[in-house]
């Protein structure tokens, strides 16, 4: 993942072998809270403390910050305390997802309100 994203490892260089099975790309923390589980890597363009707090609630293992954005040191510190792997890539969120998809990662299954409407 580090290679294809040409990523900087901001936190967790010793934990890069942590497996992830699915990916989710979102700046909406409520959507993340709704659909994501701990085996998922989160790709986001948001770099506020809530991204890390959301990850803590979900026991996420890996975060990727897109478009060259780097969160502040105190945010990285709390990520470190949680044992997260944190990467930063110059790619936009779209392109980061593209290369990860090509690598074989797939999205999380997401139930929507449509599903219920379709059943009616």
């Amino acid at each position: 993942m580090v290679t294809v994203l040409n990523a900087k490892v901001l936190i967790g260089a010793d934990k890069l072998d942590t497996p992830v099975y699915t990916a989710c790309c979102s700046d909406l923390m409520s959507d993340v809270l709704a659909f994501v589980d701990e085996k998922t890597v989160l790709i986001t363009g948001l770099t506020n403390p809530h991204v890390v707090r959301t990850s803590e609630m979900l026991d996420l293992k890996c975060l990727v910050f897109a478009r060259g954005k780097i969160p502040t040191d105190d945010i990285l510190e709390s990520a470190d305390e949680q044992g997260l792997v944190v990467l930063a890539t110059k790619l936009t969120a779209f392109s980061a997802c593209g290369v990860l998809y090509q690598m074989g990662l797939r999205g999380v299954p997401v139930p929507t309100q449509w599903d219920q409407e379709d059943k009616k």
Binding site: L28, M29, S30, D31, V32, A34, V51, T54
Partner: peptide, 15 residues
């Protein structure tokens, strides 16, 4: 701007 206000909170709690 912080990533909230998606209107998913209450439905998430219920789920």
């Amino acid at each position: 701007s912080l990533g909230f206000g998606a209107g998913m909170g209450l439905p998430n709690m219920k789920r």
